[in-house]
Structure formats: C-alpha cells, structure tokens
Design a protein around this nucleic acid. Structure first.
Lengths: 216, 216
DNA sequence: CCTAAGTAAGTGAGTGCTTACTATACTCCG
DNA sequence: CGGAGTATAGTAAGCACTCACTTACTTAGG
C-alpha cells in the first residue's frame, strides 16, 4: 500500500553524522563539486555524486543552492576571485625585469597546470557547455593578466628594447605558446608522445619570443 | 485495455518519408551526430535529438550502431581520416619555401577554425570526456602535421637559416601561438574583447617566430 | 508482365534506470 | 521551544536502448 506522501515513522538506528554550520557545509559542497564539475563537466556531474562525495543527501545541496546551475555559478565565481591564481604570480614578478619576467610567467603557468589541471578543465568545459560563463573567466582571470603583460611589452617597446609589434598580439603569442603546450601535454595526453624537461621548454619559448621581439 | 506487448494496429495515414539505402542513412546519421556531439559533447547530445534532426526514429540509429559510444567512435574515425584537413594544407605547401610556408600554415589554421569550429569542439570535448579517444585525434591529425613542421624546421637549422633550437619545441611554439589565439577567439569568446584583422595576426606571429629563430 | 515471397528499412510504444529537484518528518542545539 | 540541518522517500521527466511489428523495395517463377 502506498502512502500519498510524507514519511513513515522511522527508527534512527543509523550512525549519525557530524553537524556543520551552514557556511562550512556550503564551502565543502563547493569544494567537492568543483572537483566533479572539472572532471565531468556540468552535464556529466550529478547532484547524487556530489552529495555522495560530500557525505550528505542531495536535499542538503538544495538547501544551499536552489538549482544545480547556481552551484555551478558559485564555483566559477569562487575560482575567479581566487587567492591561488594570478595575484600570486603578479607578486612574484615584483621588482623583476628583463628576461626573468618571461621565464617566471612561463614557469608559473606550466607548473600550475601540471600541478592541478582542474582550473584548465573548468575553463574548457565552461567554454564548450556554457559559453556565457566562460566569459567571466576570461574577464577576471584572463584579461587582467594579459593586460599586465601587454603593458609590460608596450613599455619595453617604448624604451627601444623591443621592436614595434602590436603589444596585444605579442602578449597573446607568448601566452599562446606556453598555454597551448601545457594544454596539449596535460589534457590531450600529448606527453605520451613528446616530452621535454620543463626548464628546457621554458628556455626555448622565452628565447624564441625575446629574440623574436628584439630590434634587428 | 492494454496489449501484453506488441503494437496496436496502426493506420498509415501519415505522410511517408523517403527511404534510404543503409550506407546513405549511416552517413547521414554520422553527419547529423557530428554536429550535435560537437555542440553538446557526448553526454550532452541525446540519441533522441540525433534521430529527430535526421528525421528518423531512434531505433534506426541502433540498426547501424549498437551503442551510442560506437556512433561517437565512428565520428572520430571519420574526422581523423578526413579529406578536408591536413592533406589539403600539405598540398598547398608544395613548392613553397621561406616565410611563405609559415604564413600559409597560420592562415590555414585560423581560417579553418573560424569557418567551422566543430573540429575544434570535438577535439576539446573528447579530451575532456573521453581522453583515450582524443589520443586518436592527436596521433592522426596532430602528430603527422607537427612532424612535418618539425622536420621542415630541422632542415632550416641544418642549412643555417635558423639557429639551433629543439625543433620539436620550436614547432610547438609556432602552432601554439596560432592555435591558442584561434581557440581563444572562437571558443572562449575572446573576440568580444579583442580583435585584429586576420592578416595582421598572421604577420605578427610569423614575424615573431621567424625573427626569433634567426641566427644572431 | 504480373504477382507473391523475401528482406532491408523503418516505426511507435515501450523498459528500466537515472536525473534534477521536492515534500515531509525527525533531531539537535542555542 | 524554534529553527537550522539532515534524513527518508518520494516525483516527473529524461535517458539509452529494445521489441514486436509494418512498409517499401527487390526479385524469382509462372
């Protein structure tokens, strides 16, 4: 016989779980979900799996986020205003000049992506599945950083250390070499067929770029 | 009253559709599905949607492909042994030398991806969702082409027209600039914030690269 | 040339399972 | 007590995939 709705009286014999404050729980859900969305994409990651990994029931997720989409947005937001990202790089660059600036940038990007590819995966998934959200990424993490590099190059052109090249394109050329290599190695699995020590890669790319930008 | 199974007698009043031979139909399914898988990914594209766009019932798909996965593999295969891809580029390069080789390669890639981003999307989706399949892409389309460029650069180094740089890294640097720019513009939506005429982009990238590889 | 048997192509209505999301009741703690 | 937090047990819709059956086309025999 079926109940119309509601619950039958239940016996609370199951071992009870730890309670958490709302914000703790929310942060934990975001953490777990970030990992899953990065691995499986928005459509591939299920609320059930997220709840399972967090050790709670699906209903708890919906106490904190009214729709799956909202949880996804929260993740993108948290990744955009992240402590671990570009700010750290920019501080590493303080006081550095010449060739070293480019070496630091290239090493940073290669290392960061090798260490944790989830940011890269989230970015790519959001570009493919949810184009509008990927623009958030672009705006907050991409453009700020590209803008820095662009104006750095611009000033090197002004002092005559580099020849006159559209600084926007030059910056994109440099980032492109590094990022594309990183993506190919980590995500496309290209490292199965081609591999060089990270130091050599950085040296080669920085060489080609700086030499390419030198006045003749 | 319900039948135990089987169909109720049906009246064939609906306008009948064209019949197709098996191979025609199979090719059509692959064509329609390519488009959908490229837009939505493996998980995002549904068999129902594919059938709908092809104007057939889902069951027909399963006459030709025993699982959805098989259809996906067929698409990857067909895209790998494609007439429209690298062979065309390689023939365009016949007899060309010097700077022009690099201009042609860069223009080709930028134009190809702008015209039809579905190959790029399939590649990226397969890297994220189905890593093993993306290696098929890499092997057939990527490595062959990279290998060509690599050995071209190698020979330029031998004749002394370029300085000594790991040719594998040099080739990846050049392709990286171009591909990453293309991906950023077309897939990340970066063209909303930054745009240059294609000719200028090609010129700048080729300049930086060739100048960067010149003997000092 | 006509017709009927044989078969490839196609269909509509499922199956069983999974999904995002919800309604309701219980419990712990301030 | 009251409300935040959690659990149980849903629901309706959507998914890949199947089945029993029909229809269109081909072809062999008179």
């Amino acid at each position: 016989m079926k109940r119309l709705s509601g619950r039958p009286a239940k016996q609370p014999t199951v071992p009870r779980r730890k309670r958490m404050s709302g914000e703790e729980r929310k942060a934990q859900i975001v953490r777990v979900a970030t990992d899953l969305f990065a691995r499986e994409g928005f459509k591939g990651a299920t609320t059930r799996e997220i709840a399972g990994k967090a050790g709670i029931s699906e209903a708890v997720i919906y106490k904190h986020f009214s729709r799956k989409e909202d949880l996804y947005k929260a993740i993108i937001d948290s990744r955009c205003s992240n402590p671990g990202g570009e700010p750290r790089l920019l501080s590493m660059l303080k006081g550095k000049e010449g060739r070293e600036v480019f070496v630091i940038i290239a090493s940073f990007l290669l290392e960061e992506h090798r260490r944790d590819s989830s940011f890269l995966r989230l970015l790519m998934y959001s570009a493919l599945e949810r184009q509008s959200l990927s623009e958030l990424f672009i705006n907050t993490r991409g453009l700020e950083f590209l803008g820095f590099l662009e104006s750095h190059i611009q000033s090197l052109i002004k002092t005559g250390e580099m020849r006159k090249v559209d600084p926007g394109l030059a910056a994109r050329a440099f980032i492109g070499m590094v990022e594309h290599y990183s993506i190919a190695q980590e995500l496309y699995g290209a490292k199965r067929f081609f591999s060089r020590p990270e130091r050599k890669v950085v040296e080669a790319f920085v060489d080609i770029f700086l030499n390419g930008m030198r006045r003749r």
